[in-house]
Simulated assay, not measured.
Amino acid sequence: MDGKHMQIGEVAARTELSLRTIRHYEETGLVVPSARSQGGFRLYTEADVARLMVIRRMKPLGFTLDQMRDLLEATDRLDSRAELPVGEREELLDRVRDYRETARQRVAALRTQLARAEEFAATLDECLTSARRP
């Protein structure tokens, strides 16, 4: 191998995703290996790893596969070397901004949920501490 491509096992280790999950994302069209080895093994690039990391980061925020696909398509178009008409560029930027706002809202909701869970755990600690007293 020329060092530019990685096999799926290395990608799994770097992204902390299972082989099965990476294959699932391939089957759904979210990520496509950049190449195949002579033996037919999937080969990935740094760009493929970056794409998988976007997917991995969206998952805990509850984004659907369709939403992941939509965001990736928008960012792919924005990152492409092709000239985009101003209207299309603005529409793509608006889509990315919408995802950013949704992500921020979901992160805030998760922080609230975590704070409530920590309060509950502290309540249980207090309960156990007070139960030990004679």
Rank of each mutant, 00 (worst) to 15 (best):
G3I: 06
H5R: 12
Q7G: 11
I8W: 10
A12T: 12
A12Q: 05
A13T: 11
A13Y: 04
L17N: 06
L17Y: 03
S18K: 08
L19V: 15
R20L: 09
R20P: 01
R23M: 12
H24M: 14
H24Y: 15
Y25G: 09
E26T: 03
E27M: 01
L30Y: 05
V32Y: 01
S34D: 07
R36A: 05
S37C: 08
Q38N: 08
R42N: 04
R42V: 03
R42A: 10
T45Y: 03
V49H: 06
A50L: 08
V54F: 03
I55R: 02
I55C: 09
M58F: 02
K59S: 04
F63R: 00
T64C: 02
L65Q: 06
L65W: 04
Q67A: 14
Q67C: 09
Q67T: 06
R69N: 05
R69C: 03
D70T: 10
L71F: 13
E73G: 06
D76L: 06
L78Y: 01
D79E: 10
S80M: 00
E91A: 14
D94Y: 03
R95E: 10
R95A: 07
D98S: 14
T102I: 04
T102Q: 14
T102W: 12
R104H: 07
L110A: 13
L114V: 11
R116G: 05
A117Q: 07
A121H: 11
A121P: 08
A122K: 11
T123C: 10
T123D: 12
D125E: 15
R132M: 09
P134C: 08
